[in-house]
Design a protein around this nucleic acid. Structure first.
Lengths: 217, 217
DNA sequence: GGGAGTCAACCAACCGGTTGGTGGCCAATG
DNA sequence: CATTGGCCACCAACCGGTTGGTTGACTCCC
């Protein structure tokens, strides 16, 4: 009747700052945040498989071991980064309100100024998570507000169709960042402020026209 | 800056089948193609950093050493895969012709049936190539035909604006594959045939409306 | 014979993860 | 107040396994 000799049943609690037990010391919290920021840069640049834990630690000016002390593993660190990124996404994605086209333009600007966010989204989409993140229900509920806002502006009830429309709108703002090769194929300049301004104008005009006589089932 | 001290100054010529020297034997060509196909699967699933050369060789039923004999390195093998993918892309992307909305729907279907292609595009976009691939000019010229076709349908001259529009249209068809997490956030089902049909209908309707009174500068 | 491919072994570098130990902070103790 | 002692963040060094890449001897078959 040998009990299983697992030395520690993996109670790696302190994955988030909301650790229930003892309040984290300010010093500890600051290094945890430095690690998170450095990991975000590294993961945004190289993805999970391409990221190197040593590099993350060096970037943060922190010992590599702290990563495992705070997060447990490279993948859990990635998940923590993704969670902060998703929170930032749903927070920064204001309500479409009465101007969906302008909203797409603003989202486009934001992604241009913060490519990290878009790249993290792309990496994570390719990575193919199996089970959903904690707090995902809260994020989904938060996004429901945006669906409601868009539906109200269009004078319709919230529905899957409105959700699809919102997905399309956000996707539009992300296209230039996600497919630079396609832009090259179609000789569409993407770098530089004036190229961005033209692309932004194109996207907003496109959305404005699509929603001009919005009658979709 | 992992400059590996390669003893050979990398004159690995036979990267493509169009090796100038001697004609490749049919047997050699078949294993080269098997390697290419296996590499495509592996790279589409895991990206460059996540792919393993041993796995590629095993998948192809070929010895690992052959990869270096034919392609020289993992990265060059990836480039070869990307080149075939880009060729497939520009070939399969028929002219928009007189029905851009239906064309987007067909592209959407194609990407659904061949997720490999879309995933390879995403990986490569994130990878961030510095210099462009060989034969890229030919591909760009080929895409110019599509721009011309779309311009003709709209009764306009080919321009950067038409190129941007084409980029937007192709991007639209790729959104559901590129951003599954956003779809989850907006509760937009993506899997299953009927969900795909609805998404397809949404996209085509969106494009139809956007192009209904197409007057963009 | 000779090109094509296989197989097994090998290598240096590297990667994620672990460990023993150090030093500073702080509360209890005298 | 000074001493003690434990706790905690931190670090340098280390570990076992893996990775991309190479080599050379052997087989197969046109």
């Amino acid at each position: 009747m040998l009990a299983i000799m697992s030395p520690m049943p993996s109670d790696h609690v302190p994955s988030t700052s909301a650790a229930p037990g003892r309040a984290a010391s300010p010093r500890a919290e600051s290094t945890r945040l430095a690690l998170l920021a450095a990991a975000r840069e590294e993961f945004a640049e190289r993805g999970i498989a391409g990221a190197r834990v040593d590099r993350i630690a060096r970037r943060a000016g922190v010992n590599k071991e702290r990563i495992y002390g705070y997060f447990g593993s490279k993948e859990k660190l990635f998940d923590a980064v993704i969670e902060t990124a998703l929170d930032e996404l749903v927070e920064v994605t204001a309500l479409p309100g009465d101007d969906p086209a302008g909203w797409v333009g603003r989202m486009f600007d934001y992604y241009r100024e913060h490519p990290d966010l878009a790249r993290l989204l792309l990496w994570e989409g390719l990575y193919g998570r199996t089970e959903s993140l904690p707090e995902q229900r809260r994020r989904i509920a938060h996004c429901q507000d945006k669906i409601d806002s868009l539906a109200a502006h269009l004078g319709r009830e919230p529905s899957h169709e409105i959700g699809r429309l919102l997905l399309t709108l956000i996707g539009l703002a992300l296209i230039p960042l996600a497919f630079p090769q396609l832009a090259e194929l179609f000789r569409t300049p993407v770098d530089g402020p004036e190229a961005a301004a033209e692309m932004r104008e194109h996207l907003t005009a496109f959305v404005r026209m699509a929603l001009a006589n919005a009658d979709f089932s």
